[in-house]
Design a protein around this nucleic acid. Structure first.
Lengths: 153, 153
DNA sequence: GTCAGTGCAAACTTTTTGCAACTAC
DNA sequence: GTAGTTGCAAAAAGTTTGCACTGAC
């Protein structure tokens, strides 16, 4: 687990909970610690599985509830994918754009710094932008390969 | 209903079905005709409702199946929103730049031509880009106004 | 001690599937 | 005629909710 990252982000959570007069439960911090160990996107079932692995049982209701809190406190961002909802640490999501294959649903990250700056520097009237998500849809190389083989047969 | 638009798009569907050796059923063309009458995004239940209104009953299974075909033939694009899946005619979806208020959930469209061109001209290795969606999250002017009034009280 | 937070299971929503009936070709 | 489509209902998958118990404050 990335303990440096966890230390920084847990401070954000602490301040958020204090500001909202919510309780600092063991579950909330353990879930956050677990999320910090994911290198990229994850869904509820992967998170639940990882928590079971370290013998820390949390109910589904609590996971959903906690991720709503993390989303509201801008610790994670939510991506709606075809199968289920994916989450990602916001600090990771800020550095990239998403490539989504419309055949298999796989998500890849694209890092284009100038595009990132272009979007962040947009002047939008009557709107306070906080963060963004760019999804580029298409066919990944694996599926393209499969499709081209199908045609040959 | 926009019959000019329907005439053009039904031609795309006809060619797609012939190419794939699939049947040109009444349902498929009536669903397309109905979709052409939506000015913007719609979901399955809105589409179903609109079809009932014109006394053309179609089962849910057929609607889902048909929209998969329309997506594959690039007639519609799919947006995963929090509540349910939204669809939109691809020709309407020229601007995929959405502003989403994190307080009230309102969606506004942003038209920034240079950003659009920037994204469309991206060179992405091992990925065939087809279309994109940019979601910028933040606070809309209405909610900002409400928040500022709250603080005064 | 109090009430927000949690666990569990049931409920709910959206989407998919199996199968019989139908129809475009 | 036949195989692709459709309708219907049941099933599956993901998420939310109700309620009793627990523990942070």
């Amino acid at each position: 687990m990335d303990s440096k990252r966890y230390t920084d982000i847990s401070e954000i959570l602490t301040q958020y909970l204090e500001k909202k007069k919510m309780r600092k439960t063991e579950e909330r911090f353990m879930i956050l610690r677990c999320i910090c160990s994911f290198p990229s996107h994850f869904d509820i079932s992967e998170l639940s599985q990882k928590l079971e692995e370290i013998k820390f049982h949390v109910s589904l209701a609590t996971l959903y509830n906690t991720l709503d809190i993390f989303e509201d406190s801008h610790i994670v961002v939510r991506h709606q994918s075809i199968q289920s909802t994916l989450y990602e640490l916001k600090i990771l999501a800020e550095t990239h754009q998403h490539l989504i294959c419309t055949k298999c649903g796989a998500i890849r990250d694209l890092k284009n710094v100038s595009l990132k700056q272009n979007i962040e520097n947009l002047k939008i009237p009557r709107f306070n932008a906080e963060y963004y998500a760019l999804y580029i849809y298409g066919i990944c190389s694996k599926c393209k390969y499969k499709l081209s083989r199908k045609k040959q047969i």
